[in-house]
């Protein structure tokens, strides 16, 4: 059976409406006037009531990772005697419209939460298992993208791949689950998604195998001591940052009743590595930059065989101090070469 189709805009609207009856459809959406600066827009992942709400022209400020790893999630409730796990607010399955870098980003999260030393995080898994990827074909980079260098520009991990054109949508449907609705509404057509093959920004990755320990204390990191303001935007906008802290909160004046939540944390934020007794690792911002860099392109690869960073470039988009992560990686590689000579 043929699995690719062409649909007019109207036909795709019918598909969208049909799917909306059974799924929550989520995609990058523009919120007018809610940007950081006045009269600017915020683009973030949110439920779409119509395909017209899908924002394709600009990169989203935040990634779709909230869907599997919300900023603030209640894990369980306790009352002094027992605890009960928090249920998800609904059982809706979710179709998420996202680009290949973000599909790869969620793959990086999967490894952290579900494939890390055989421990499966149940809170992550229950959200992850209800996601269906509808890949937005991405043939042109946005500003600051370096997915090609990170080998995250391609993906075949999708239920459907969609090319949005002026007159309609071309689709390849990989999952039988969605085949019928596309087949009924569209006409048969040859379509295979293409991928961006070159970004303006290119990153040279250092070799994991030959990372000299001296680089950890290299003065390369010192410039970030004064440049970074530890606002944490690089962490919160990143699709692969998966650090969290847990917080117990008590209801009213109760000493026994309350709930435990897990809340996003980030290695650039103050307090991230504060310990009981007041000890703190990585007090300097440069050390935090080093920690993040190595996590994204060194130790994660050693553990999982792929780099954590997918090159979406959101950290570069949002840094108020114009710190560029892609530049940082290149600086690191250059420094390593210098040292080798």
């Amino acid at each position: 059976m043929n699995k690719s189709f062409k649909l007019s805009s109207e036909q795709f609207k019918t598909v969208f409406a049909g799917l909306s009856e059974h799924y929550c459809i989520v995609g990058p959406k523009r919120f007018a006037g809610l940007g950081r600066f006045s009269d600017t827009d915020l683009i973030r992942y949110a439920p779409l009531t119509s395909i017209d709400e899908l924002e394709l022209a600009e990169k989203s400020c935040f990634s779709p990772k909230d869907l599997v790893f919300p900023p603030d999630e209640t894990l369980f409730y306790f009352n002094g005697q027992q605890f009960s796990e928090a249920a998800l607010p609904d059982n809706l399955e979710i179709i998420v419209l996202l680009r290949p870098c973000d599909i790869n980003g969620i793959d990086r999260l999967d490894r952290m939460f579900m494939k890390n030393a055989d421990v499966i995080d149940p809170y992550y898994q229950r959200r992850r298992s209800r996601l269906h990827f509808f890949m937005i074909e991405c043939r042109e980079s946005f500003e600051n993208c370096f997915c090609v260098s990170m080998n995250a520009n391609r993906s075949d991990n999708y239920a459907a791949a969609l090319r949005f054109g002026k007159d309609g949508v071309e689709a390849e449907v990989a999952s039988d689950k969605f085949l019928e609705t596309f087949a009924v509404n569209g006409s048969v057509f040859e379509f295979k998604p293409e991928f961006v093959s070159e970004n303006q920004i290119k990153v040279e990755l250092p070799k994991v195998e030959t990372m000299p320990p001296e680089i950890f204390t290299d003065k390369l990191w010192e410039e970030y001591d004064s440049r970074c303001i530890s606002c944490g935007r690089c962490n919160t906008s990143c699709v692969t940052c998966s650090c969290f802290t847990t917080r117990d909160l008590f209801y009213g004046d109760s000493r026994t009743c309350g709930e435990r939540r897990r809340v996003w944390d980030g290695c650039h934020l103050d307090g991230f590595c504060d310990m009981a007794g007041g000890h703190t690792f990585r007090k300097n911002k440069g050390e935090r930059m080093r920690f993040k860099t190595f996590h994204k392109i060194y130790d994660y690869r050693k553990r999982f065989g792929v780099d954590m960073c997918v090159g979406c470039g959101r950290c570069d988009d949002v840094c108020p101090e114009y710190i560029s992560f892609s530049n940082c990686i290149n600086k690191l590689s250059a420094r390593l070469k210098e040292g080798a000579e």
Partner: peptide, 28 residues
């Protein structure tokens, strides 16, 4: 309790909270 409480009578509406929030939890 880990969340932010805004005293409306003290708030002068400058927007610093919106500018400083890394998750857009504050918007105008």
């Amino acid at each position: 309790n880990g969340k932010v409480y805004r005293d409306e009578r003290r708030c002068i509406g400058c927007g610093e909270c919106v500018l400083s929030c890394p998750t857009a939890a504050w918007t105008r």
